[in-house]
Amino acid sequence: MASLTDRPPASGVVRAPSKPATIKDVAAAAAVSIATVSRALNGGERVLPETVARVRAVALALGYTPSRTARGLVTGRSANVGVILPDVTNPFFAPLLAAIESAAQAQDHGVLIGDSREDPAAELRIARRMTSQADGIILVSSRLPDDEIRALAARVPVVLANRQLAGLDSAVIDVAPGFTGAIEHLAALGHTRVLYLAGPAGSWSGQAKERALHDAAAASGIMLTTWGPHRPTFDGGRQVADRVLASGYGAVICYDDLMALGLQSRCADRGVDVPGELSIIGCDDALPDGMARPALTTIEGRSDELGQLAADLLLDRMARLTDPPQSRTVTSRLIIRASTAPTPHKLR
């Protein structure tokens, strides 16, 4: 039902005030009550469509922007979504976050960002705080135990990016095509022994990568060795480099591009030819052009598409709480650049 005070304004001309407009200014210019303005701008059902159109036109003319806090008091929602990342400095997550922000802003939602720094305890503290500040949360590459994630999902909608858990929406990268391609590429170059530098312990995507590598190695007749866990950082790659160079392996696959870049950097320090003496493959395709020399052969992760899928899932879940959970997938692929080559026979 429309408010009894809803009536056309006395004049068809609305001029923007010299100072920021308030809800009172909109109400006066549209000749309606403040409560009607609030309902019209927040999707209330008790306002006539023509009144909604008039109020919104006046608000636009006056340059009025509703307060998120005030709107939250009316709707019971914060109009925010939360995103928790394991390492905000990792370049893999920048396109993912940009895609989430773009999708959220398109529906007039703000984005709250948390950085757990690869610490599950910190991730849990941030997530618990966000449940009272956001209408839904995207957990990216979460390190939390399953039961903690389910407890969070009982409070607000939760979407997992790069992890799967029964009963929850998820968007994941199918790493099998990319890592299978990496093993097949090295086998074609004549490598028979390959070293894999694993990432953080408890990483769901890390476990998926290891499964894909072992399956592909078995199918290709490659002897695969896994070392880890390691921090998925530039320093993590540099720290393990001397041990790699002493091992006699001629080909290394790294958990991510940052580790591969660190390994490559230490090789340069020691005068080790990449790829002449050591072939290196990264994962994510997250480095800017020219950062890795030689250019890094890597497994494309398409994190921007992962972010878009995760955002779409969360926004859909927030609108339809009782729908069955959905899972979306991004397919990986190997990108061959200049950091892989046949090695001398003694290193194969």
Rank of each mutant, 00 (worst) to 15 (best):
G202S: 09
I34R: 15
D256L: 05
G76S: 04
E123D: 13
R143I: 09
A98V: 07
G76A: 08
D269E: 14
A70R: 06
A104R: 12
P9Q: 02
H230N: 13
V88E: 04
G248P: 02
V55E: 09
A29R: 09
A16G: 06
S102A: 07
F234P: 07
D269W: 12
S116P: 13
L315I: 05
T89I: 11
A16C: 13
D108W: 07
R211F: 01
L347E: 04
T51F: 10
E148S: 15
A208M: 04
I280E: 02
R39M: 10
Y196C: 07
S18T: 11
C254L: 01
A98H: 04
G307I: 07
S279M: 01
H109R: 09
R270T: 01
G43P: 08
Q105F: 10
S33H: 03
M223R: 14
L313C: 00
A30L: 06
A35V: 06
V194E: 04
P66W: 08
T180L: 05
P120H: 11
A151H: 10
R39Q: 10
P325I: 00
Y196G: 06
P20H: 04
A53E: 14
L278M: 02
I138S: 02
R150I: 06
P49K: 10
G276W: 03
L224I: 01
D242T: 05
A40V: 01
A70N: 00
P324R: 15
A29K: 11
T226F: 05
N162M: 02
R54D: 13
R317A: 00
A127H: 01
R125Y: 08
S11N: 14
A198F: 06
S38W: 05
A154I: 10
R155Y: 04
N42L: 09
W227D: 11
G167M: 04
